[in-house]
Every structure is written in structure tokens, then in C-alpha cells.
Design a protein around this nucleic acid. Sequence first.
RNA 1: CGGGAUGUGGCUCAGCCUGGUAGAGUACUCGCUUCGGGAGCGAGGGGUCGGAGGUUCAAAUCCUCUCAUCCCGACCA
Length: 570
Amino acid sequence: MRLTRFYIPTLKEAPAEADVASQKMMMRAGMIRKLAAGIYSTLPLGLRVIRKLENIIREEMNRAGAMEVFMPAVQPSELWVESGRWDVYGKELLRFRDRHDREFCFGPTHEEVITDLVRRDVRSYRDLPLNFYQIQTKFRDEIRPRFGVMRGREFSMKDAYSFDATDDGANKSYEAMRVAYTAIFTRLGLNFRAVEADTGQIGGSFSHEFMVLADSGEDTIAYCGKCEYAANVEKVEIKAPADVESGEALPLEEVSTPKMKTIEEVSGFLKIAPERLIKTLVYKTDTGEFVVALTRGDHDVNNVKLARAVKANEVTMADDAEVFKATNAPSGFLGPIGLTSVKIIADNAVRVLRNAVTGANKKDAHVRNVNHERDFPNATFADIRNVKAGDPCPRCAGGVMGLARGIEVGHIFKLGTKYSEAMRATFLDSEGKEQPMIMGCYGIGVGRTAAAAIEQNHDDKGIIWPSSIAPFDVAVIPLNMDDEAVVKAAEEVYAELMKEGLDPIIDDRDARGGVKFNDADLVGYPAQVVVGKKSLAEGKVEIKNRKTGERVSVAPGEVVAEVRKVIAGY
RNA sequence: CGGGAUGUGGCUCAGCCUGGUAGAGUACUCGCUUCGGGAGCGAGGGGUCGGAGGUUCAAAUCCUCUCAUCCCGACCA
């Protein structure tokens, strides 16, 4: 490709709204332009990256036995009503009506459509298993789109859906996808980790997220330093402490704690470590029910875990008025004692505390020597807290958990029969008995993966593409466009690179060297071949490795081999 | 959805407080010089000052409404 015939509108300064590295660089390198909040156009350079990425995904999906299809972006409401999600999906689902006043949505995912497709034709266990995938534009009307294409509203996603006759088969389909995803992200050259994850709104029985490790990631993952266990903090299991602390349960004792509301204040005032306090929080579920959550003073409630424990879709903290309504006590001085009309969920760590401190359910007072068996026997225990670095690993002996930030680029779910039952996608088994198909679904955020690659691979000058998805393998940079020998040598090198099957771009603009160097560094071609008057006089051209910055001078005939060497090192 | 901020040429921003009819850098066009890390000089083109309404002799500037964009929060009592 010739730069004079290819559109790469680079910018010296990033638009003010860009706040993460990948967004700044994709804008500056002329890969994307914003049309509206969370909605982007992809320019030719960006599309090259996306296509290379998609092709790797396709190859690995096909290898794993999945078949590509293409489903409609616009979906009728009936299917969503049938699956039960029309009412639960909320405002993220973009809904609209056609001219006949029929309701539709712009698909945020395609379980309904694929399930409908399959149930129409598949009748027998002999037709199974099946796995269909597509690469398609989705729309999720996010509350707050941000970070460019990493959290856009309109985005491209590879989604796949498997249908099996047996549970064992479904597990095999799931495993095949886990292997395929590992192959995909490995080929993309990303530093990633597959972690156990919450199934969220999609539903289902178990799932893994594929996380690209980057400090700018929106998710936190916990991993064991010793064994292979890793999970999203929303999911990570926390080992419940085994034995109740020793010691006698002492009589309850009310203490005055004027204006001491927070854990720090109470802990400091009573000179008692936060670990000896029980924090009492009031939550409201999406159905309007109040729940009281208890954790140790030094621990934090994880909303997702709490929601799962009380079988709600979502929980939010109650405000002060709601707190009073639920407990008849002022916030800041809450405790579980005497709360009988509301459900109490306590974290496992609270169970073993002996003689702890809680609020007294009245202003300016707390209670000492609280013990759950005696003082709040109506509590149920569950794992509802956030993991802390240093917590013991739940899966191995002696392992300790660490925390890292990650960008969720892929997510695989074993769905089970949630959709097939709701939508009656059934088949006849070998005994002639009707059974619901067992499903799995598997997504990869295409644009987000490209952005994650940049988050993980850039410097202050620009992007450093993994060679597998670089828009071009190598840039040929003639420095003196008015020097015939330079132009001729550069053109020959360019032609040779193409002939040898590489994907080069030649910067044939009549521009100064500095401009070309800076653009090349910004766009991030893995290798640059610099053809200039001076080195050419000695029969040499220069090859620069974008990642290491190393330059070597070689004869024009050795360029292809040298470029290959550079790319291989990526 | 709550709070905060910002909308001025393609991009980054000044001007607004104190009203007098729009500016800089960069980018773009042309000429000359220059030419291995975002050149210099000269000459140009490009702006309904987000939109609507109001106040005023006069509005980018003051007032009201509205739209858009961004940030923070929606988690620890």
C-alpha cells in the first residue's frame, strides 16, 4: 500500500475527551473517529487491525468446529418476551418501534435469535452438537460510555452459541471454546489470564472471563500465587475461617459512642481493632426488599456476591431514609441485634467472631461482646465480601491471593437449559424422549481487544502493535523524494517485501523525514525500513525495530530477511 | 439517575469576569529556501462563537431554556 493513496489522518494532539492511552492513540493514529457518545467510525487503518483480528478469531473458531452465520442486528420483542428478558434487561436494551408500532430492539446479544433459529430445524440428537458464531455489531445503551471503544455503546462482538444433547457434550463444547480462546489471545500476542467469573445477566451455570492484564482495566481479578486458581473479584471464593474463636461469650454491654459513625471512628474511639467490629449495611434489592449485610469491620461487601446470596438481580445501598425504614435505627449506629423483620446475611468471617462490637440501633451507642449464636441467630452466612490481597487461596494449601487489573476481552458461559427451556428448543434423544438442548455462549469484544492490545503495548511515541494484528508489517520510508536513487531503491525494497508475502506500506509522501518517522512510530508498524541518501551512498538501508528501537544497516537485498527477523521477535 | 465542568475554524486553546461584532498555535493551499526525528520566511482560504429565546443602540461576552460532550459518584454508614 502507498501512503499517498491510503487515508491515515494523524493528529498531533489527541481530542480533549480521550482519557486512556488506547483511545488517545487510536484517535491520533487515524484509526477511529467519534460520532456520538460511545459510537465510533472505524477508518481504513483501524479496519485493517480489526480485520486481521477477526481473521484470527475465525480461523480458531473454525478449527474448533464452529460455523459462521450472520444474524440480524434488529430483533423483534416477541423473542425477548419469550425468553423472559424483555422485562429484566432494563435500559441497556435499546428499544424502538417500527411504522406498524411493533416493538423491536437493537440486539445487545443473540441468544434469543440463535435459539429460535435452531429450534425451528433441529429435531434429533443426531443433529447435535452444533456451534454457530458470528461477528456482528451490538448495541448496549451503557449508563456511561467511556474509554473510547473499550466501553462503547455500539461495538463489534464475536458471539458463538453451542447446542448439545448431553451435559457431558456441553462441557466438551465449552472446553473446546476455552481452548480456542486461549489460542486466539495467544496468537494475538497478549498477556492474558482466563479467570472464573460471575454469569451476570446472561445467566447460566459457570463461566470464564479472558482478561488482558493492564492497569487501566475496569475489572479486578484475584489469582493464587501458587496454583492456577484465578477469578474475578465478583466471583472469587473466599475460604471460610474454620473455627470459632476461643473464649467465653461475655454479657452484652452498651457503650456510649457520641458521633462515632464510621468503622475508623468507632475503632479509634473504643481502641478496638477494625477486625473486632461488625459492619452493618442495609441494601435494597431490585424487587424492593431490604437486606441487612454484615461484614467484619476491615472487610468490604461485594455487591455481586451479595446479590447472588439473596438471589436478586441487583442490590444497591439504601439511603438514610430507607435505612431507618428497614431497621428503625439511625445509620451509623446499626447492628443486627433485634432485627427480626428483615433478612440478615452475614459474611463467613463474621461467624467466627467472639465478643465483637456492633451498633446498638440507637443514636450515639454501640454494643460490646456481641456473639451471633446468642445475639442474632436469625442471620444466614455466606461469602459476600471482597477478596483482599493476602487472603488464603481456597483451592490449594499455602497459596496466597494477589490482585491485578484486567480488561475483559472474552467471556465464555455454560448456559445450560435456561433459554432452551424458556423458548422450547428441544430435540428427541435416542429413546425418543423430548429434551431441552444444553447451551453455551461465547463472546469476544473485537474492538475492545484491539484497544486492550494498545493498552498493553505502547510507549510515549505511540502504538507498538503485536505483529499478528499490526495494520502493516513494515513501513518503507524514503527520506528524499526528490532523489531518484533513493526513490528507486525504496520502491525496489517495497516491491520485494510484497513479493515475499509481507504486508508493507511505503510512505511516498513528499514530507520531511521527521514527519514520517513520527507518524510511523505513532501508528506502530513493527518494522521500519529507512532509505536515505547518506546510507544509500554506502549501499545500505536502515531497519528499525519499533519495539526495541534497535537499528541495523543492511544491503537492500537483505531487507526481507532482516524484516522477518524483527517481526519474529515480537 | 445525582453532582461538577465544558461547548469559539479539522485539532489544542485564549477572549467571557468588566458587552462595541473574533484571535493564537497547529493543520490546510500557493511561492521561495530547506530536507535523517513533527523546518524557515512570505502570501492565502476556512468560524451560524452548540441551538433557541430574551435584555441592550449593540451579545462569543449578561439572563432563561435547551441540546451535546466530558469528569466524579451511584460501595462500605
